[in-house]
Structure formats: C-alpha cells, structure tokens
C-alpha cells in the first residue's frame, strides 16, 4: 500500500516514511463517528447505541473474508471507534475535546496553573498541618465546585451563550485537586 500522505510504500498501520497512520485515522471526529450531537451533556445510552450500530458496520470480523485493503481499514476504523467511545464516555475528556479540539492536554501536565490558585493550595497544606484531613476536605469541596462550574459553562454554551475559553484551565485545576483528594485519602 502507498501512504496517502507521503507516497512512500507502507506496510502496517503506520507509514515508515512520514509516520502517518493510514486512513481511517484518529483524526476522525468522535461526535460524528458515534452519531451524537456535539454537546457536553450527552446520554450515555445514546453513545453506546451509536457505537454498536457503527461497530456492526466496520468491525474486522465483518471483513474477515474480504480483501486485505478492507480488512486493514476496518481495523483502523474500529480502533478509532473504540477511542471515540472512550473519549466521549469520560466527562473530562469530552469537555476538553469540545473546548480545545483534543481529548488529551496539549502539553504534559496541561496549561500553567494560575499563581493565585497555587497559593490557595499552599494555604490548604498549611491548614492541613494544623488539623490533619483539612486538605482533602477542602480539595473535595473544590472538586465539586469546579464540576458545577464546568456544568454551568457548558449549559450556557449549549444554549448559544458564552464560550469555552475557561474550560481548559478549569480542567487543569480539576485534575490537580482530584490528585490531591486521591493522594490524601490513602
């Protein structure tokens, strides 16, 4: 097979010449693939339904007796489909995808956290030294607040008001406080 992107001969899913994953690739939009609306508030059952109907069309088992080109493409289609479901089923990934176009943080650790937020965490740590357990309690409350804030942002956006500029930062904060909760529970 010839790579669609650099015209080099390619064997397997990834082109040796340009590293392009041969189509259908991961670039596929999960919302389109699963046939669900481009929203944050999604019905999990609808995701599964879209997944099942698509899986029946593209799964490698449906192509086992067909030529290699179809088998290979069906493998990639199904990998994309599985990834799409994984992303849309996870509220944080779904939120990031809507806000930034990518399900994973653009850089490792996500965007830089606001100094005021970090100062607050520092303050929590001090409180925790005086009364152990304070940190995880504060973190848990903040986790709830952040989720509620994200929910509000998306509710407004879905009704045509507001934008998603704050989402990436809030997700980074959420990841941080979730980490704190987990770390201090055990």
């Amino acid at each position: 097979m010839i790579c669609y992107s650099c015209n080099e001969a390619v064997r397997g899913p990834v082109c040796v010449g340009c590293s392009a994953l041969q189509p259908p690739g991961l670039a596929l939009d999960p919302f389109v693939l699963l046939g669900v609306p481009r929203r944050f508030h999604l019905d999990g059952a609808k995701i599964d339904e879209g997944y099942r109907s698509m899986a029946k069309r593209v799964h490698p088992d449906k192509f086992a007796a067909r030529p290699a080109v179809e088998r290979r493409m069906s493998l990639q289609w199904t990998a994309s489909l599985n990834e799409a479901r994984r992303v849309l089923k996870d509220p944080d990934k779904r939120a990031r995808l809507l806000a930034t176009g990518q399900a994973e943080p653009r850089e490792k650790g996500g965007p830089k956290l606001d100094p005021a937020f970090l100062a607050e965490i520092f303050d929590w740590r001090e409180q925790d030294e005086e009364s152990p357990g304070a940190l995880s309690d504060l973190a848990r409350v903040r986790e709830g607040d952040l989720r509620a804030e994200l929910d509000t942002i998306f509710t407004a956006w879905e009704s045509g008001a507001g934008d998603l500029t704050l989402v990436e930062d809030r997700l980074a904060r959420l990841k941080y406080v979730t980490g704190l909760v987990r770390e201090h529970v055990s």
Partner: peptide, 25 residues
C-alpha cells in the same frame, strides 16, 4: 451524519486508489 466530512478527514479516496495490497494475513 456528515459522511462527506468524515470521508474528507480520512483522505479515503486518495489512499486506496493508489493502493497496492498484501492480502496475506
């Protein structure tokens, strides 16, 4: 669904029209 958009993102046409095959599993 927006099938045209899906196909475009995949560059489907290009890739396979030029494709040669190894059909041995």
């Amino acid at each position: 669904r927006d099938a045209g958009e899906v196909g475009k993102q995949l560059g489907l046409k290009d890739s396979v029209a030029r494709g040669t095959l190894d059909h041995t599993p």
